[in-house]
Structure formats: C-alpha cells, structure tokens
C-alpha cells in the first residue's frame, strides 16, 4: 500500500463514516462536501483511526448552509499507541449563507503516542462583504454573487 494514496469523496451524503489505517505506510485522503438549504439538517460523523505505523491521513469537510439549515460536523482522529510516525490533518470549514443557518463543528483528537504530527482546524463564518462588493462592482447582483461565492467555496 505504501506510497499510494487512497482517495475517498463523500458528496452530500450525511452519515457515519469510519476509516481505519491498519497497514504500515497507508495514506488516506477524505474529502467531504455538502450544501444544505431550506430546513435541511445534516449530520456527519467522521472517525479516522490510525492503528499502524507511518500512516498519513488528510480529511477535509466543507459545507455551505443556507435557509434555516443546520449542519453538525463531528470529526475525530484517533492515533493508537501502535501508530508511531502518524501524520494526520482534519479540517472542517462551514460557510453560513443565510441569517438563520446554524452549524456545529467538533474536530476531536485523541493521541496515544508521541511520534506524531496531528493538527486540525475548524472555521465557521459568513461570506466576506468585500467579496460580494467586488462582484457587484462587476455588475453582478448580490444574490447571484452569493451563489457564486458559495459555489467557489466548495470547489
């Protein structure tokens, strides 16, 4: 498996996902994307378990929440004591497009050994006014500008 990155894409499919890296040198890349509108509620549970040495994982979940949608993103990286030399990264980015959109982002880490490099990042925010202004100054209506920015966010 060494040197070969396994890519997994989860597009608009809420649910529970668990990935176990149990071969030495395994590499995994998980990309999750979603958009919620109206009264949609989406819940993602992503668990990455590093059980073998020198494994690498990169997890990236991005979502746009519109209307009065609610997003719950719960990610966890577990590094077992057997998994020395682990490198893991977990990223959760959520864009709230409407006033009533809500989000909960929980990026957890559980590290049981020392020779690791793990990090995570989470952001929840809204569309930058300046980005909308820029597009408007190019003759694009604000609603459409928001749509374009949201679309670009998920790319």
């Amino acid at each position: 498996m060494a040197g070969k990155t396994k890519m997994i894409k989860i597009i608009n499919k809420p649910g529970k996902y668990q990935f176990i890296l149990d071969h030495e040198g395994q590499e995994l890349e998980v990309t999750g994307k979603f958009s919620l509108t109206g009264k949609q509620v989406g819940r993602w549970d992503v668990e990455i378990i590093h059980a073998a040495p020198n494994t690498t994982s990169k997890t990236n979940v991005k979502g746009v929440v519109d209307g009065s949608g609610r997003a719950f993103v719960n990610g966890i990286i577990k590094v077992l004591s057997s998994a020395v030399g682990t490198e893991a990264f977990l990223e959760e980015r959520i864009l709230l497009v409407s006033e009533n959109a809500k989000a909960e982002a929980t990026p957890n880490l559980e590290i049981e050994t020392d020779e690791v490099h793990c990090s995570h990042a989470a952001t929840v925010g809204k569309i930058d006014e300046e980005e909308i202004f820029y597009l408007q100054s190019r003759g694009i209506k604000s609603d459409q500008a928001k749509e374009m920015i949201a679309e670009g966010f998920l790319l």
């Binding site: 006033e99 959109a101 809500k102 989000a103 990026p107 880490l109 929840v124």
Partner: peptide, 27 residues
C-alpha cells in the same frame, strides 16, 4: 510514547454573522 494528549472542542454557531477559528496541533 507512553503519554497521551486529546483535544475535544465543540463549536456551536447559531448566527451567520460571526467568525470562528479553531486550530490545534499535537507533536
């Protein structure tokens, strides 16, 4: 190698007009 470190953050956002950043690293 015998030691352990965990990070359990919870971020609940009920408002779109906010900025929230969270970073963590373990090494």
């Amino acid at each position: 190698p015998q030691s352990r470190s965990d990070t359990y953050p919870t971020n609940k956002i009920f408002n779109s007009d906010v900025t929230l950043e969270h970073e963590a690293s373990v090494s």
